[in-house]
Every structure is written in C-alpha cells, then in structure tokens.
C-alpha cells in the first residue's frame, strides 16, 4: 500500500511528475472544465490558475499521477460551481427561451455547437457539471458521482434529464426524432 508523504517539503513524491509537467499535462482539462461551465474566459483562466496554485501547496500530499488528475478534476469542478453560485451567473436566456431551430445541421456545425453550449449554460449547476464531466472527460456516472460527491443514481437521473431537454430543443436540428 502506498503511503502519502507527509513532511512539508518541496519535493514531490517519486510517483508524481514535476509540477511544471503536471501543469502542462492537465491545464487543458482544468481550464476546459472552468470554461465549459462558466463560459467566461477570463474567469475560467483565473480559476484554473488558482486550482494549480492550490495543488502546488498540497503537492506533498499527492500519492500518484492518477491521484493528481483526480484531485485536479474534483477541485476544478467544486471551485467552478462555487464561483457560479457566488456570482449567481444566471443564464441570459432560460432553456425555454432558446428558440428551436428548424433547419437540420451538418455534423460539427459550429452554430449547433454554440447553441448546445448556450443550452448547457442554462442548465442548473450540478446538471451542467455532470454533463461536462460525461462529455468532456468521458467519465461514467460512477466516476462523476465520486468527483461531485453525490449518489450515482442522482447523476444518472441528472444526465437523463439534461439529455432529454437537449434532445427536445434540438431534435429537429439533429435530424432525430423527438422522444
């Protein structure tokens, strides 16, 4: 069993790469969680920087590279949710307020992506983050539940609800039948 190093020193555990490498390896993930959630680039960058600085202070507690990745994901998610709550970033338009497009879109259509992001931005915070972890990070519901510290069945129902809403709003544009 691995044990965490508990002495306060600048040395990182042997299993963890150096701090600079950690930043380069994970900055896309951390920044994108903040960016996809908050849709404010400046805020997302600031938040992402703060997450890495927090890691820097706690680096001696990390047990492995995998532990670092999980820790960064968890802290980025919780900080983004807290940030949104503090700012009370209400969506410009509610989900109901987004008009349904009528013309089918080609795969990867940037306008469709933009609309999707707006719709996702209008979801309640926990639902929004669950969706981001599912589709940005490719986590399964059990992994999402561990990051967000909510029961797995809650995650499953949140994902189902979000997808149903998105499908309803975008069904025609996706060329799918509205279920």
């Amino acid at each position: 069993m691995r044990t965490a190093m508990t002495t306060e020193s600048d040395a990182t555990p042997a299993e963890c790469p150096p701090f600079a490498d950690i930043v380069r390896q994970h900055q896309g993930m951390v920044f994108s969680i903040a960016w996809n959630f908050l849709r404010d680039r400046t805020l997302a960058e600031e938040l992402a920087q703060d997450v890495f600085l927090q890691l820097h202070r706690h680096l001696h507690e990390m047990q492995s590279a995998a532990h670092v990745a999980f820790w960064l994901k968890k802290v980025a998610c919780h900080r983004a949710i807290d940030c949104a709550r503090r700012r009370k970033l209400r969506p410009q338009v509610s989900i109901e307020g987004v008009p349904e497009p009528s013309i089918p879109a080609a795969p990867g259509d940037p306008l469709l992506s933009d609309m999707l992001r707006r719709l996702i931005g209008a979801l309640p915070e926990k639902q929004r983050m669950a969706l981001i972890l599912r589709y940005q990070e490719d986590l399964d519901p059990a992994e999402i539940a561990e990051v967000l510290k909510v029961p797995v069945r809650t995650i499953k129902s949140q994902l189902q609800r979000s997808l149903a809403t998105l499908r309803q709003k975008l069904g025609r544009r996706l060329g799918e039948e509205i279920v």
Partner: peptide, 18 residues
C-alpha cells in the same frame, strides 16, 4: 452512440489555454 452524443463531445471538447 447518438448524434447528440457526438455533438456534445464536439461542443464540450477540451481546449488548451496555451
């Protein structure tokens, strides 16, 4: 995998801050 799944992965793909 549905079209919506693909579009969500595209819309929420990671972006490197540089």
């Amino acid at each position: 995998m549905s079209r919506l799944d693909d579009e969500l992965r595209n819309a929420l793909r990671r972006e490197d801050p540089g």
